[in-house]
């Protein structure tokens, strides 16, 4: 089996691209596939990259971002024996599909925890830039909170970037001053500023994307975790086992890509009823009985 990956940036970025490269390496380790990756910057390079994998008879080629959709459709028509997968997106063709991560399922649960455990009746959200994917996780957080308490107040603050830890701390302190006693962030690197503010004011908060519980073990109650490498392996297994069907692949809790990670140290401070309720809702999501709202993008 031969698997290729196109990334829009350096695989050493310790973020979006690094995590895709980690997925590619796990495909190599777990499935013994021959792997290759290319860093591509422009739409022309996306096409060349996909075409090179198609021409070399690769079984599977990933394009790591919604911007790879057009190139995937074009190369897909040229090389019908190769499966082209884009990370997020909508475009589907007989051998082209997007995989979409449903982190919203976990942030919905965080919303429930906040609404149940908050004493002030207010939670705060700190965002870096208002990207559709970030907005969507906030939307689900609010929906989760409102599902148990329609009058629960959720305040939103954006800092305008993902680098400025000081600004994220300032934004968080403003939310705490406004009465929020639970904070959730989508500020990537600047999230450390959020945890600093929560630690100094002893306000409980949540981690995002990765299991961040160790970054501030005294205040982070739980993290919404997204396991991107596992998603890559999941798709590679489908292609290997000839189980691939052209469709949008929603990858969430059911597939084990998204999960809620409690901080063992703080879980005892949460009421058992809440823990039970969250486990119950999680099961409903896993069984497909509950559909978590998400933004349209």
């Amino acid at each position: 089996m031969k698997v290729g990956l196109l990334t829009p940036g350096s695989v050493n970025d310790n973020g979006w691209n690094a995590i895709a490269y980690e997925g590619l390496q796990q495909i190599h380790r777990q499935l013994g596939a021959q792997i290759s990756y290319q860093e591509t910057k422009t739409p022309a390079e996306f096409e060349e990259g996909f075409q090179s994998y198609g021409a070399k008879g690769f079984d599977l080629a990933f394009g790591h971002g919604f911007e790879f959709q057009d190139a995937a459709l074009k190369a897909g028509a040229q090389y019908p024996k190769t499966v082209f997968i884009t990370t997020s997106g909508k475009s589907v063709a007989p051998n082209v599909s997007p995989m979409v991560f449903e982190l919203e399922q976990a942030t919905y649960l965080l919303g429930i925890i906040a609404a149940r455990e908050s004493k002030s009746g207010k939670a705060g959200l700190v965002g870096g830039i208002k990207l559709p994917s970030i907005d969507s996780t906030f939307l689900a957080f609010k929906a989760g909170a409102h599902s148990v308490n329609p009058r629960f107040e959720v305040k939103e603050v954006y800092t305008g970037n993902f680098d400025d830890l000081g600004a994220a701390r300032l934004a968080t302190l403003s939310l705490i001053n406004a009465g929020c006693d639970f904070i959730f962030h989508q500020a990537n690197e600047a999230g450390r500023g959020v945890f600093q503010a929560c630690t100094e004011r002893k306000v409980r908060c949540f981690g995002s994307n990765k299991n961040q519980n160790d970054l501030a073990p005294d205040v982070i109650v739980a993290s919404a975790v997204l396991d991107v490498p596992k998603a890559f392996v999941y798709m590679a297994k489908l292609v290997r086992d000839k189980q691939f069907r052209p469709q949008v692949y929603w990858l969430g809790m059911k597939e084990g890509i998204v999960s809620l990670a409690w901080n063992d140290r703080l879980e005892p401070t949460i009421s058992p009823a809440t823990v039970e309720e969250v486990a119950d809702v999680e099961k409903q999501i896993r069984d497909g009985k509950l559909e978590v709202p998400r933004g349209k993008f």
């Binding site: 680098d163 000081g166 701390r169």
Partner: peptide, 16 residues
């Protein structure tokens, strides 16, 4: 002050 007091550690382009 930026990396040790106002924030806790370094981040790329943190002066923003």
């Amino acid at each position: 002050d930026l990396s040790l007091a106002l924030s806790s550690g370094f981040a790329e382009n943190m002066t923003s």
